[in-house]
Design a protein around this nucleic acid. Structure first.
Lengths: 219, 219
DNA sequence: ATTAATATTTAAGCTTGCTTAAATATTTTA
DNA sequence: TAAAATATTTAAGCAAGCTTAAATATTAAT
């Protein structure tokens, strides 16, 4: 299956996992940087290949076969992220960009070798779970968005759920990374809530960023 | 530039380096597993892109720009071979196949990181020289084909110049690998020369194989 | 030096993965 | 609930990278 197809099912999969989960062609098109027409077109083709269910004007739903393909690509992406992160001094965003390309040119055999080399990690450097070779994610996600965190408590960052360059640069600058500890205090201005994290410095997070940083309670 | 283009210039480059160097479209086509018509077509397109010189019925000659592109792809291929060989337990042929795909999805930045991680190696696991980031091969090749080696002398294997699966399997079976030592004795039967190498066992090499194994004198 | 064999080129056509423009349906908003 | 805004779909078309078949040129052989 082609890179275009792999990216298409991956986009549907990832969109389905998000909060504002809209898997209509237009949303997938925006994600992939292609026209709506192209997305509708592809949806029909992939329906014929039994990778997704397509009904006019409805959301796109992956079939089992499509979900398996998406998870296989996601697995390869996250394994590459983990490997590149371990071996090379590259920014999280650079690592993401490289993995985005390499994921489509990686045999199952190589993916398994990478996994074994890394000791079969369950998470990548963003805290995203890595599906196993059967496309299963066995880890249970107990994390919550930082925007939902409670005033005065301490949390451990479990996931930076984004591909955005500026977000990663912000995180790098403020030492917001996987497994680091943050103390949450909430700040209100004009009746709108903003947040403050205390680590080394005091960091002000906007609503956008605090909804893509996920944390676990520090027990 | 696309994978198809990168593979095309690479095929011309590698063909030009070989003994029976024929870079006419048909030969390139055979190498790439495409039709002659497709090769002629591509040659015209790449001529328009200033990657090669095309004149009807003549050999294809890479321009400086084309040579640079070929060397950049070759560099990435060989760096991947070296990295995969170091990290994973995979056959030389499997490593070759993976590198063949990854080479087209690798930024110059990542290539440089791989090179640095490996200590800027000058040769890959087959003994093929790795061009530097400017597309230069600075090492001087003093090796000769085993078919040219002298009776009774000892040599060090410097290069296994092939992509062929069966050849690699033969090499693995007989411990013919980069930097190993071989003792050459020649055998004639029916006036045709065959060769015998002594390492652990006695290995009989045919003409084909002894012309793609390169060696240096053991001084 | 012709003829035969082989290689290259041209031509027409196909699939994939996109585009833009126009038609149609859905959703939002007033 | 009807009009306005937005999204989706259809239609036509394009470039890349192939194919096969036929025409033409080159090379080899007698």
């Amino acid at each position: 299956m082609s890179t275009a197809i792999e990216n298409f099912v991956k986009a549907i999969y990832k969109n389905g996992k998000r909060d504002n989960n809209d898997t209509k062609p237009g949303n997938i098109a925006k994600e992939l940087g292609i026209s709506n027409a192209a997305a509708t077109d592809m949806a029909k083709k992939l329906s014929a290949k039994d990778l997704l269910h397509y009904k006019k004007y409805q959301e796109l739903k992956l079939t089992d076969k499509g979900t398996k393909m998406a998870l296989n690509v996601v697995r390869k992406h996250r394994l590459w992220e983990a490997l590149l992160f371990k071996l090379f001094d590259l920014s999280l965003h650079d690592i993401h960009k490289e993995a985005e390309l390499l994921e489509h040119q990686t045999s199952d055999l190589l993916a398994n070798k990478i996994s074994a080399y890394l000791g079969h990690p369950k998470f990548d450097p963003h805290g995203d779970p890595i599906p196993n070779e059967h496309g299963e994610i066995t880890t249970i996600d107990t994390s919550i968005a930082l925007s939902q965190a409670e005033e005065g408590k301490t949390y451990i960052i479990s996931r930076l759920m984004s591909d955005d360059k500026e977000f990663f640069e912000f995180c790098a600058l403020n030492e917001l990374k996987y497994s680091n500890t943050v103390f949450v205090s909430k700040q209100f201005s004009n009746n709108k809530m903003t947040q403050i994290l205390v680590k080394n410095n005091t960091i002000l997070l906007n609503q956008d960023f605090s909804s893509i940083i996920y944390v676990n309670e520090n027990n």
